[in-house]
């Protein structure tokens, strides 16, 4: 079997020397995205860690990028794709030219401040691919709790652990009945790129990819362990790799035997204060979720 390194284009549209933290998986993700979508793309950017390599002068991608504000990166997809449609009709953009429109947003932008914008663009089925880069807190501003922060997690605004549960954004997006929703992980690049290619090659419409992205800075683990942590999230069954293709759900990876959740929680400083009871309650939730996902 050929590896991604062999199949993806050699050309780099995202360059080294970027200002992401050491150990941040965002750099890899941006390479996979830019290589898969290619030069014929336009990006709508939220206020996110991912804006740093693309938008902080003098860094940039070799893809046009637009930053409006924290909330409306989905509205950016809407505006760009609407403009492309009318400009094609008027002949100012060649009618047969395929331009991929995509948005990059963090979990705080996608699930909190930009939720209305995201839901609106999905409901209108505007043409583009939306990436939620989920590092489970407001990392760019210094690790504050978001609705996507998991229960019991330490952040700088939940110093005794977050009491509430994580918002399940992919399920909310699937409820919009859009053409495609998928969960991906930075530890599974083949699955990531395959799903992205699928979204890219689909008919026009709104596609949603939710990326589970461990953050060494905010989750408090050594920067060499990013992929290990990401893989543990999948192997423990906490993060389920699945896709909803035109309403039909498919789980893409079922661990033969799920590892105990403690293996995932223990290396992370953000879960240091968890009691055995807390850990058991997380384990119970995972077991219940998989029972629901049995078929």
């Amino acid at each position: 079997m050929r590896t991604l390194a062999e199949t993806l284009p050699k050309e780099e549209l995202f360059h080294s020397g970027h200002p992401l933290c050491p150990g941040c998986p965002g750099g890899m993700m941006l390479r996979w995205i830019t290589k898969t979508l290619g030069k014929n793309s336009i990006c709508s950017m939220a206020a996110t860690c991912m804006a740093l390599p693309a938008m902080v002068y003098p860094h940039s991608l070799e893809i046009p990028c637009l930053y409006i504000a924290m909330a409306p990166s989905p509205a950016g997809i809407t505006g760009v794709s609407a403009a492309i449609k009318i400009l094609k009709r008027k002949g100012r953009i060649p009618a047969d030219r395929k331009i991929s429109v995509f948005a990059l947003a963090g979990d705080g932008s996608a699930g909190d401040i930009g939720m209305a914008s995201l839901s609106g663009a999905a409901e209108r089925n505007d043409d583009g691919i939306f990436f939620c880069f989920d590092n489970e807190a407001y990392m760019n501003t210094g690790i504050q709790r978001s609705s996507s922060t998991p229960r019991f997690s330490w952040t700088t605004s939940t110093i005794k652990g977050k009491p509430e549960k994580k918002k399940d954004l992919p399920r909310i997006m699937a409820a919009h009945d859009i053409p495609y929703v998928a969960t991906v992980s930075v530890a599974y690049p083949d699955d990531f790129v395959r799903k992205l290619e699928k979204a890219r090659d689909m008919e026009p419409g709104f596609k949603y990819l939710h990326v589970h992205s461990p953050c060494p800075t905010g989750w408090r683990f050594p920067e060499s362990k990013t992929i290990e942590i990401a893989r543990l999230a999948v192997e423990t069954g906490l993060w389920i790799l699945y896709e909803v293709d035109h309403g039909s759900l498919k789980v893409n990876f079922r661990p033969e035997k799920r590892r105990p959740i403690e293996d995932y929680l223990r290396p992370q400083g953000r879960f240091r204060e968890l009691s055995q009871k807390d850990i058991q309650s997380i384990q119970d939730r995972i077991d219940n979720r998989w029972r629901d996902m049995r078929n």
Binding site: S44, A75, G76, G79, V80, A83
Partner: peptide, 21 residues
């Protein structure tokens, strides 16, 4: 485009105008 808020109305206008419309 029937947007879901005025915030998005102007954001869509910005994105469309930036694309040349």
């Amino acid at each position: 485009v029937s947007v879901e808020s005025e915030h998005s109305a102007l954001a869509v206008a910005i994105a469309a105008q930036a694309t040349g419309a």
